[in-house]
């Protein structure tokens, strides 16, 4: 296994600042907007964005976390099923602008499931997608991000791992390749 660093902590910080500015440009004071972190990893990106928004004087942004396990299209197809995580959405989403936040966009299937799941909380007026990493050219469904941190070219055999200093020792994004490539 070979680990190649794609983004350092410094670059991640710059990217998050840029994404925050892009969000502010489109959502103003966020009074009609709800940011939704996709479980499990998107929630960590959401926390970073909320801190950045607060640094820009925008606090009390409506937000929540959405788990899509029960909406996956590979139920009864995986060898071992995934365990669900917590969903916590305390706002009614009817007529709101929703932004999905995730760390890595790959096949687009999680986002498809999230589009299905979110309607249990009302019909949003629009839904956007923000991702830290876009593994482009690997989509299996017609889904594209509205806000992208960095585009990455990768093979199906490779993995992109986003690590945060709260769980390992630093903020970093790796491209992980199997040895034989």
């Amino acid at each position: 296994m070979i680990k190649k660093e794609l983004l350092s902590g410094k670059s991640i910080d710059i990217i998050l600042s840029r994404l925050t500015c892009e969000l502010i440009e489109n959502h103003g004071d966020f009074s009609d907007t709800v940011l939704i972190g996709l479980q499990p990893r998107g929630v960590l990106v959401l926390d970073k964005l909320l801190t950045k928004l607060a640094g820009n004087g925008i606090s009390n942004v409506n937000h929540g976390r959405l788990d899509i396990t029960f909406y996956r299209d590979d139920f009864r197809r995986r060898d071992i099923p995934l365990q669900p995580n917590q969903t916590k959405i305390d706002v009614i989403l009817e007529g709101k602008k929703v932004v999905f936040v995730d760390d890595v966009l790959y096949t687009g299937r999680s986002v498809r499931s999230a589009l299905d799941a979110i309607h249990s909380f009302g019909r949003p007026s629009e839904i956007e997608l923000l991702v830290l990493i876009d593994r482009r050219f690997s989509r299996e469904l017609p889904i594209q991000p509205d806000y992208t941190g960095k585009q990455v070219d990768s093979l199906a055999s490779q993995k992109v791992a986003v690590e945060w200093k709260e769980e390992s020792d630093k903020d970093v994004v790796y491209l992980i390749k199997p040895n034989d490539e």
Binding site: D67, F70, T87
Partner: peptide
């Protein structure tokens, strides 16, 4: 997690 589901405005998963 299902307890959260059955307390949503729409209490159904596919």
């Amino acid at each position: 997690q299902f307890k959260e589901v059955i307390n949503r405005p729409i209490r159904k998963v596919p």
